[in-house]
Amino acid sequence: MLKIQNLHAQIEEKPILNGISLTVNAGEVHAIMGPNGSGKSTLAATLAGREEYTVTQGSVEYMGKNLLEMTPEERAREGVFLAFQYPVEIPGVSTINFMKTALNQIRVHRGEAPLDAVAFLKLMKEKMKLVEIDQSLLNRSLNEGFSGGEKKRNEIFQMAMLEPRLSILDETDSGLDIDALRIVAHGVNALRSKNNATIVVTHYQRLLDYIVPDFVHVLYKGRIVKSGTRELALELEEKGYDWIKADLATAR
């Protein structure tokens, strides 16, 4: 589904990603871990097409197409979803209105007819249950005055609505208490299928207790320095990132 090869990216002349290679197949869940400043969020943003990040080298192939040539909205319409670490507020625009606009643009892109109000509402009610989100929240201005947990649940609600092929969760666990974490993880797990894939970007192992990854990669200084299975995450939790850093230092 996704094939990243030797990806280099920078922001304002400052290199952040220094040659990332990663292949994600349908049905897989990959966790990207790493200390602060290692480039985790940059990777997520670059895949989503954030303008500030310039790709200087490498390629990204998504569903057989060159992802880097696509605009952010094209990527989204082709099924790339980013759950934001800091979802923005849009005053005066309800989540419902926002989702209706988004879903219908995606549907038109796919050559499908826009959903009418009744069908949309039906779909919405169904997806609301998944993340235990209340309709009153969805009637409010998008993310305005939402608690941290509400924002993250709203992100997963949107993910459920848009049914992406490739979901990238950027630090979705940050700022969540254990109950909220459980709800969010439940939503993500319910959406897992053999046809879609998930990249979970996280600093802590905790989230991976709930969303169990098939592969774990450790990002450090803009490169994947270690890959493994779930055990790698547990090892990291026990030994800390210094272990990786020290390991790398001796290797050199």
């Binding site: 989503a48 097409g49 954030r50 303008e51 605009t71 952010p72 909205e73 990527r75 989204a76 319409r77 979803f81 980013l82 934001f84 979802p87 923005v88 849009i90 005053p91 005066g92 625009v93 209105n97 926002f98 989702m99 606009t101 988004a102 879903l103 643009q105 995606i106 892109h109 201005s141 949107q158 848009l162």
Partner: peptide
Amino acid sequence: DQIFYCQQRGIDEESAVALIVNGY
């Protein structure tokens, strides 16, 4: 940030501005 957020959900730039301005 607001524009990008909309785009990431499949909404093109022009519709995003219209959405944000109408909300405002």
